[in-house]
Structure formats: C-alpha cells, structure tokens
Design a binder for these strands. Structure first.
Lengths: 334, 334
DNA sequence: CTGAAAGCGCTAACAT
DNA sequence: ATGTTAGCGCTTTCAG
C-alpha cells in the first residue's frame, strides 16, 4: 500500500542528493560502495522504483519499441511478437503492441498512438508497403521502423521470399502429379503477402506448363466461404489441389470440405502457407510453406535496434521451407 | 523527417501561450474557434503531436494498462489480449503486453517492468494466486489489478468456474457411456486452472460412481509425451476417454495417438478445455469446454477501469459451455 | 566521489 | 478566452 516515493524522497531519507540516488541505479560503479548500499537499502525499504516516465522525459529516451500487427488470432503473428519481445528484452527495451484487424484506418490510428507514446522505433506489418498512409506518416515522423512479413525495396524489411516460396509449393504439387491448381486467399487488398504468393504460384505454373491456377478470393483471411468452394469444385476443370494463402484459411477450407463430404487428401489435396505450429498437430498434418515467424520478429527487432544504435539497418530475407504434410498426395491415388 | 517539435515551439509559431496550445488538444471547447483552428493548422503543418511522456509526468497519469500473460502461443491468451485491447481503446487507454512463458521469475520481472513504466493497472494470469510473489509485490505497490483466468477469493478476478466446467464435461462423457477416464494436464504447479479442472473432474466422477480418473501430467502445457501416453493406454483398466486440460494439449494428444495407430474418436474419445477457435476447424472438430476468452479480456479490462474510476471492482464468473465436437463418441461404438 | 542547478514537455491552478 | 507560473521525477553537466 506504500504510495510510491520519488527519487527525491529517497535522497532526503538517506541524506544524499537526488543525483547520487540516480547514480545508485544507473551508474552504480561511480559510487562509494557504502553510500550505494545505504541508498539501495533505503530504496527497497520504501518500495522505491525509478519512475520511467520521469527518466524518459529527462533523458529523451523511452527504451520502448512499438509493434503493430494485423491480429493475434493468427498464431504466426503471435509468434512474431514473442520473437520481438525476446530480442527487445535482451536489449533492455519494452514493447508496446497494437493490432489493426487488417483495417487501414485502425492501422494509422494505432501507429499514431504508438508514436505519441514516444516509442523509439516501430516494427510493423502493413497491408501494402507500396501504398500505405501509415508508412507515410511514419516516414515524416523520423522514427525508424522495420517491416515484418512485408517485402519492400524502399524500406527495411524482414520476410521470406513469398514469390519463390509459393513457387516451391507449386513445383512440389506438380511433382506429385497435380495439374489444375486453385489458389485460395483472403482479400488481396489487405495483404501484399497474398498477392506475392499468388503471383509466385501463377508464374511457376506457367513455367511448368500447367494450366493457370484458378484464384478464389474469400471475404476474410481466415474463413472459408462454402458457396465459393462449391462453385470452384463444380467448374469444368476442377482443381485437384487447393493452395491456401495461409494456414488458418487452409484449416477452414479442410473443415468446409469435410462438411461437403470431401476428404483430404483422398479426394483433394490442400496446403497452406505460414507454418503455424498447430498445423503439425492436425490429423493429417497440414502441408505448408513454413516461414520462421519467431525469427522474423527477432530479426526485425534486432535490425530496429541496430538502426537505433546508429548502425545501418539492412533488409533480411529469411529462409522458408516446405513441410510436406499429410494433406497432400498424388491426385486420384487411393 | 521533421524533428518532432514541442508544444512550446508550436505556441511560439502561433503566437499564443503553451497553455493555449495544450487546451487546443485537450479541452478544445474552451477555446475561441478561430484560435483553435490556427493552432491545429500550425500543429499539423509542423507535424506536432503531443508528447505523452511529458503529459504523463505532469498529469500523473499514463493512461496505459499492463497485461501479463503466460504465452501468446496459446490462442486463448491471444484472444484475451484482443478483448482487453478493445476495451482499453474504447476508454482511451493503451496496453503494454508482456509474456511470462509460465516462468514465475520472468513473471515477477515483467510485472516490475510494467510498474516501472507506471501502468495504471494490471491484468494478469499467474501460476497460482494463492501463492504468488508477483501478486505480493503488486499488492504493496498499490496499483490495482485484476486476475484473468485465475480464480481467487481475495483478489478481483474474471474467469469461468473451472471446477464446474470440468465436472460438466465429465458428466457428458459419462452420459455417453464412458467410465474410466484420464485427465491429462501440463505441470500443475504452473497452472491453478489445471488444478481446479482436475479437482472438478475427480469430484464429479466420484459423485457419478465412476472409477477415479487417472491423472497424467505432461512436462509441458502444450505437448504430449508419447511415452506417458503409451503407459497410460497399457494400464490394466485403460481409459476410453482422455480429458485434456487445454485444447492445445488435446490436439497434441490426438496427433500422438495417430502415430500410435489410434484413431479418434473410433478407438478413443478425446476432449479439451478452452474453446480455441481453431478446435472447430479440426476434422473431426475438437470437443471442448469453451470459455469466452475475448470476454474474459474485455471484462477484466472493464473491471480494472472501474477500479481506476474509483468504483469498486467486482470479481466476475463468466459462463462456460460444452462444445460437443466429433472427437467424442460412445465407447466401442463403431 | 558527491552536490547544485537546470530543464526535458507538458498541464493545472490561478490570474486576468 | 487566454496567459503566467510552477513543478511532475528524473538526469546531466559542471563544480568541488
């Protein structure tokens, strides 16, 4: 119940100057050991802890980073947070997290709020870095930032090569004997990742001489629309494999197919993108292009810290890999 | 690239006092419309945004809440964050999130860091509220807090009735014809929820005249140990249903059973606890005791805000419900 | 090794 | 309707 004393009150108690108390916490090596002990003891007795608001104002540094992500409902972003948090803590920084719900207005407002709190840098995933009001405001604020998951030529970013990754999956499906594929995504406007993955899949299909994959866009990133799915499968050349632009969507598609009486992979192969831990626990396990989400968070944070330390912050392309789960098989195999 | 100007600089530019600029942002109705416009225009032109560090220090209020959760890898906690964030934003508060990884030392340090940042209140899930160093420190800090998921008689908390919820599931399993059950959990020391769920299951089994459920403790909350599972199933009276203390664990158990050649629910029924969205997408869908995680976050936040507003903050017990998924069937049914 | 003095950006009283 | 004054808690020169 002790009302939190200020550094000055501790100083009075101990009979030293405020500066000395400050040094006891920040530059203890500068103090006479006895003085230091006296201060620390009294501080503990009074329940004193240095007020970061005061120190931030005076020193001009909050030692806080902002993290702005679409949603934590996708475990991929949750993993990214944990990676970033880890790297931040290691460097003595705290993290303020905000989510956008894939909404560009919330995105702008949340970024602004983070800046108002004087975060020293920002890690964020935007809808499209090439056309983002948020990035515009951020740029003119002068606060350093690093994109996570987004790919960009003109901003520092940490991501996988989404085009190449999607192409790898298409090659894999082709090698299994699939020819007509479908690419299922959420609204493309809300995710440049989905756009790149689609482009990579299309390009690869063309290279391999496959018919162009059919693109189906769902109204949300994480739910399958039963009607669209039925249409797709009723087409003249129905696909034998569905490549979903994220794992959550893949799971939803598989569940929806089950209600239509279709079994995966016996009737249809399905795969996703992201590599959420959960996919490996599905039965059958979810085939997916894995990206190292925790590392994306960790590296984005490190690059940001580098920028804060005055070192140049480089973009990093992290490796992806195929997880060949049980949801893919050769077409018409059982 | 504009270096962020201070309120004073805006005041000089406009030719008014700093107080007036402050009012333009905080009490605009007090100002002459023309003055207000002049200030707002100039502020925008200069890229000025009020510095919360300064205003927090002066006003003694950061308008920031702390949220301390075990891990975001469990989507249940991610949902809780989103609920809390929503409620906080509605009230003009920001949220600082930290995770503990179920580690009590990290928990203490993270809570301390949040307090150092002068969050005005804390929402948290601890290992065991009846014996928590974190709660001790928190108590003596005088900062109001609300427990989420934990149940407690002496602290405000928002949770389901874990005992009753587990009992409901046991009744349901019994009604399906199951007699020998097993309860599978992570380390009990790290989760009072698991302890209560186990107790509720045990008590209910006794009431119903079932043999006592076998308790198996895994080394982690979210991974199934193959060896322990094999032992369990090799017992003289093997269980026909496995009740896992959380959904992630249930999914892991199902996956592990699959590698042992056991099919769910044909060979064995399995169910979980939490109601993560993902469970409904599994095939078969995961039977589980659902708890309203987003609401837990939302209500915990509201109770905290009530406490900050001087109103008393009440504990709330939120409703749970059974989701009778495809992973449960009558024993020996096919 | 320690102290004195100044001020970070802002707002709340108190004037006017 | 606006200005003046003072100071939140801390750190940072600069002196000693």
């Amino acid at each position: 119940m002790a009302s939190r004393p200020s550094l000055t009150q501790v100083a009075e108690q101990v009979g030293v100057s405020p500066a000395t108390v400050s040094r006891a916490f920040n530059r203890p090596e500068l103090l006479n050991a006895a003085t230091r002990e006296r201060i620390l003891t009294t501080a503990k007795r009074l329940g004193f802890r240095p007020n970061k608001v005061g120190s931030s104002l005076r020193s001009g540094s909050t030692r806080t980073l902002g993290l702005l992500l679409p949603t934590l409902a996708n475990p991929v972003f949750a993993a990214c947070f944990e990676g970033a948090e880890m790297a931040a803590l290691d460097a003595g920084y705290s993290v303020m997290l905000a989510t956008t719900g894939y909404d560009s207005e919330r995105e702008r407002l949340a970024a602004r709020s983070l800046l108002d709190h004087r975060v020293e840098g920002l890690i964020l995933t935007v809808a499209d870095p090439a056309d983002s009001a948020t990035l515009g405001e951020l740029g003119s604020s002068g606060v350093p930032f690093v994109l996570a998951y987004n790919e960009s030529d003109c901003h520092p970013c940490v991501s996988v090569d989404n085009r190449a990754a999607a192409a790898d999956m298409v090659s894999h499906l082709a090698a299994q004997g699939h020819r007509q594929l479908a690419m299922i995504s959420g609204p493309l406007a809300a995710s440049d990742r989905a756009v790149h993955r689609l482009a990579g899949a299309m390009a690869c299909a063309e290279t391999l001489g496959l018919p162009p994959p059919i693109h189906v866009s769902m109204s949300r990133h994480t739910a399958a629309d039963r009607g669209r799915l039925k249409e797709l499968l009723a087409a003249p050349q129905p696909p034998s494999a569905l490549f979903c632009s994220n794992d959550l969507l893949a799971a939803a598609v598989i569940a929806e197919l089950a209600t239509l009486g279709l079994r995966v992979p016996d009737d249809l192969s399905v795969c996703g993108f992201d590599g959420m831990d959960f996919g490996a626990l599905m039965v059958p396990s979810l085939a997916s292009v894995h990206q190292p989400s925790t590392d994306i968070g960790k590296h984005a944070c490190r690059e940001l810290l580098a920028a804060l330390a005055g070192r140049p912050s480089r973009s990093r392309r992290l490796p992806h890999w195929l997880f060949d789960g049980g949801t893919i098989t050769a077409p018409g195999s059982p």
